[in-house]
Simulated assay, not measured.
Amino acid sequence: MSTQTDVEQHWKDCIEPFTDVVRAVEDWDAPTPCEGWSAHDLLDHVVVAERDFAARQGREIPVFDGSRNELWTQWVKHASAVTALAGDETFIMQSLHIATGDMTVGEALLHFHGFDLLVHRWDLARSQGRDEQWTDEEMDRIERALDSFGEQAYQPGILADPVPVADDAPRQVRLLGRLGRRA
């Protein structure tokens, strides 16, 4: 990923479906597959992680205050701010050194936070009693990210330990098992 347009488009490919799921949330207190997290906690995790990432790169994403009833509005404002950063060449082309090597800020945004949006989209939908299907391309992205994270992905507070799944289970079910989730 090296061009502004590529980063921005791939970011939109992750954030727009997540936004569709956020729009459909009716019960922000509903538990998610992430142990101890409600739908509200999950959305807060995504927002805080993205804000912290931007801040570490010298950019501020404002906190959009409001009541729990206004979570949709808060999310839309936040998502717009992060999408604008994904289209900002000065921001996304900065070099970044992380434990797994060097990459641009745009690549890191997609690799880590795009991954979060894909996985947590399923979690958020599940909290509302809905099933969310990933595309083959999305599953490719998740698998590539998991491969690069290695065993570090299963440290406390990141992913739960993998769940055993039948070898002949559908691809998404096998991937969910690898993510520590039950289909």
Score class of each variant (00 low, 15 high):
4 Q>I: 14
5 T>E: 15
6 D>F: 13
7 V>A: 05
16 E>R: 14
19 T>K: 13
21 V>H: 04
33 P>S: 08
34 C>A: 14
35 E>N: 12
37 W>L: 06
43 L>D: 00
48 V>K: 12
49 A>Q: 11
50 E>W: 05
56 R>P: 06
57 Q>A: 10
58 G>N: 09
65 D>P: 07
68 R>A: 12
68 R>M: 10
70 E>Q: 14
70 E>V: 06
84 A>G: 09
87 G>D: 02
87 G>M: 04
88 D>K: 03
88 D>S: 01
89 E>Q: 13
91 F>K: 02
93 M>V: 11
93 M>H: 13
98 I>G: 08
102 D>R: 14
103 M>N: 07
109 L>Q: 06
113 H>Y: 13
115 F>V: 00
115 F>E: 00
116 D>M: 02
117 L>Y: 02
119 V>F: 05
124 L>Q: 03
125 A>D: 02
126 R>S: 14
128 Q>F: 03
129 G>H: 00
133 Q>K: 14
134 W>Q: 02
143 E>C: 08
146 L>E: 03
146 L>F: 06
149 F>I: 06
150 G>D: 04
151 E>V: 11
153 A>T: 05
160 A>H: 13
165 V>Y: 01
174 R>D: 09
174 R>M: 12
175 L>K: 01
177 G>N: 04
177 G>L: 03
178 R>Y: 11
178 R>G: 10
180 G>C: 13
180 G>R: 03
182 R>P: 05
183 A>S: 15
183 A>K: 05
